[in-house]
């Protein structure tokens, strides 16, 4: 699609030469136009949410309820198993579990970000970035329904993050950047190779146990702590969890998380530049 020199406010026209596909500029234009149409992505995400819970009384708050029940039961069980007080354990669990659920859900849905939009991809020349943004926005909306739980638990146990808690915001931003990159990368890879989505599902399940979500890193003897940094999920979780629970974050965690994000985005973008034009044939 080229913006053409015709009357204002308009022209979508096509100029394509297979011998000189100009993949980079097309990919950049896709991203730019996708962000310009973020209101569309938002509206679609909102409709997704509404349609998913159509006719349900509590709607997405069922998720809040089930997370609450999960927190209460896991909190009681594991605080006993780990021999920690509830006050010590539950705030940690609440933040960890809710963040993990968001992350895991995001990764799972990233796999279908493009295939689920098949009917649109094959009918309209819409930037693919719109579909990725739709996926990210939908997951952010769903995750927001669990926010009250975090606040309630932190208030009950008197965990006040203070000013350093604000560091959670850039942490969330970094999570969002990763989410967008994953939606494009996994969305494309899974459109092309249909076996990837189930594999991603298994990986996420293993990652849940390998990442300190229900167990605290302190349970690991200090000499192994550096190993945790090899786990991108840990560093990303810690970006938000650290500021909320432990007052501020750890510099090593921030640096590695930024490193992972850069690599993730670079791979995602490279893939997007190279294969963007093929997506319509894949979905």
């Amino acid at each position: 699609m080229d913006a053409h020199v015709t009357p204002p406010g308009t022209p979508v026209s096509v100029r394509f030469n297979a011998a000189d596909p100009q993949r980079l500029s097309r990919a950049l234009r896709d991203l730019r136009q996708g962000f310009a149409q973020r209101r569309l992505a938002g509206a679609l995400a909102w409709l997704d949410l509404r349609n998913r819970y159509r006719g349900s009384v509590l709607g997405p708050f069922w998720l809040t309820l089930s997370t609450a029940v999960m927190l209460a039961s896991l909190g009681l069980l594991y605080s006993t198993l780990f021999q920690m007080s509830l006050a010590e354990y539950l705030p940690w669990l609440a933040v960890s579990l809710i963040l993990w659920n968001m992350l895991a859900q995001m990764v799972t849905e990233a796999c279908t970000s493009l295939t689920s939009a098949e009917s649109i991809v094959r009918q309209m020349p819409l930037p693919f970035t719109v579909h990725a943004l739709r996926c990210v926005t939908r997951n952010a909306l769903v995750a927001a329904h669990n926010l009250p739980l975090v606040v309630i638990v932190l208030l009950i146990f008197g965990v006040l993050p203070g000013w350093s808690g604000l560091l959670a915001l850039p942490g969330l931003l970094l999570l969002a950047v990763n989410a967008l990159s994953a939606s494009l990368l996994l969305g494309m890879v899974c459109a092309r190779f249909r076996d990837i989505a189930p594999i991603v599902g298994s990986v996420m399940q293993i990652a849940f146990f390998m990442t300190p979500v229900i167990w605290k890193p302190q349970l690991l003897s200090p000499e192994y702590h550096w190993l945790l940094l090899l786990n991108p999920f840990y560093t990303l979780l810690e970006l938000v969890r650290g500021p909320l629970i432990e007052g501020g974050g750890n510099l090593a965690v921030w640096l590695t998380a930024i490193g992972y994000t850069v690599v993730h985005c670079a791979v995602g973008f490279a893939f997007f530049v190279r294969f963007r034009g093929r997506v319509a044939f894949w979905v």
Binding site: T6, V12, A18
Partner: peptide
Amino acid sequence: LAGIYEPVAGELEVAGIIGQMIDPGAG
């Protein structure tokens, strides 16, 4: 012509604002 499929070979140019009525149910 609508810009949905990219050709594997050749050159294509469509000038002018495109209006497409290809699938009624799209979107």
